[in-house]
């Protein structure tokens, strides 16, 4: 084996990979744009008017979200089959953001957490690696955990807007979420995010405490809260 040949083989491999990576990054940029648009729309819910118009905000988000499956399809076309994890870090953050947005919208509409399969389906992905482009379980868990921060903010802001019952709902939801995540044995990044959930829960509990202390607990919550 000629030494020069070994190096030229490697150099052509590097070139091929750089080309592929560029294609992937292009597709990810499109996806990123949409994900930021959705996050921006969701940010409106923290405004005083936003809290009263949550349905409208969700509708707007759905419109943006409906573009996502096609964008993931475009990304999938760029990623060679069987090399999902080679490019995973390129689109990981965007996926987290989209999962978080989906979870938040579902929570606002249905007051429940969508499961791995449901989120994957709404993003146009599948859950198993062998079925094609998939939503990695860890990405789902990471994305889901990021909504806790948004929800604790929403609890505070809804009090400001005069909605006293929402913090009670949010506390209940975060408690359920915390109980569910306690079943996991998280590592690294997931562990940090899990700590964030605890702080969000604590913050929300403080809001609830302050409301209860001042007798601002809504009547219909009396039995359940």
């Amino acid at each position: 084996m000629d030494i020069a040949a070994a190096f030229s083989t490697y150099s052509s491999c590097v070139e091929r990979e750089a080309e592929l990576r560029e294609g992937v990054q292009g597709a990810v940029r499109e996806l990123e744009k949409t994900s930021y648009a959705i996050t921006t729309t969701l940010e409106k819910m923290h405004n005083t008017q936003g809290i009263q118009n949550i349905e409208t905000i969700c509708r707007e988000c759905h419109e943006e979200l409906s573009k996502v499956p096609a964008l993931y399809q475009a990304l999938q076309d760029k990623v060679p089959p069987g090399e999902f994890y080679r490019y995973h870090h390129n689109f990981r953050g965007t996926t987290h953001r989209l999962v978080a947005a989906t979870c938040l919208i579902t929570y606002l509409e249905e007051n429940s957490l969508p499961m791995h399969e449901e989120v994957a389906k709404s993003l146009g992905l599948c859950t198993q690696r062998d079925q094609g482009f998939h939503l990695d379980l860890e990405d789902y868990l990471q994305g889901t955990l990021s909504i806790s921060h948004e929800l604790s903010r929403l609890a505070i802001n809804s009090v400001t807007a005069g909605d006293y019952s929402r913090p009670f709902q949010i506390r209940q939801f975060l408690r359920d979420l915390h109980a569910a995540y306690s079943l996991l044995f998280p590592k690294n990044e997931l562990r940090k995010k899990f700590d964030e959930l605890k702080y969000s829960l604590k913050k929300t509990e403080e809001v609830v405490y302050n409301l209860s202390l001042r007798g601002l607990k809504p009547q219909e919550m009396e039995t359940s809260g």
Binding site: L113, L137, Q172, A180, P186
Partner: peptide, 28 residues
């Protein structure tokens, strides 16, 4: 978790959420 369930009887251990997360835990 035990403490949680003692304090909060409203968290159902067999809800869909909990069952799903048990599955996720195993996979993780």
């Amino acid at each position: 978790e035990c403490k949680g369930s003692k304090q909060l009887p409203d968290i159902c251990q067999d809800s869909q959420l909990m069952m799903k997360f048990r599955e996720y835990s195993k996979m993780l």
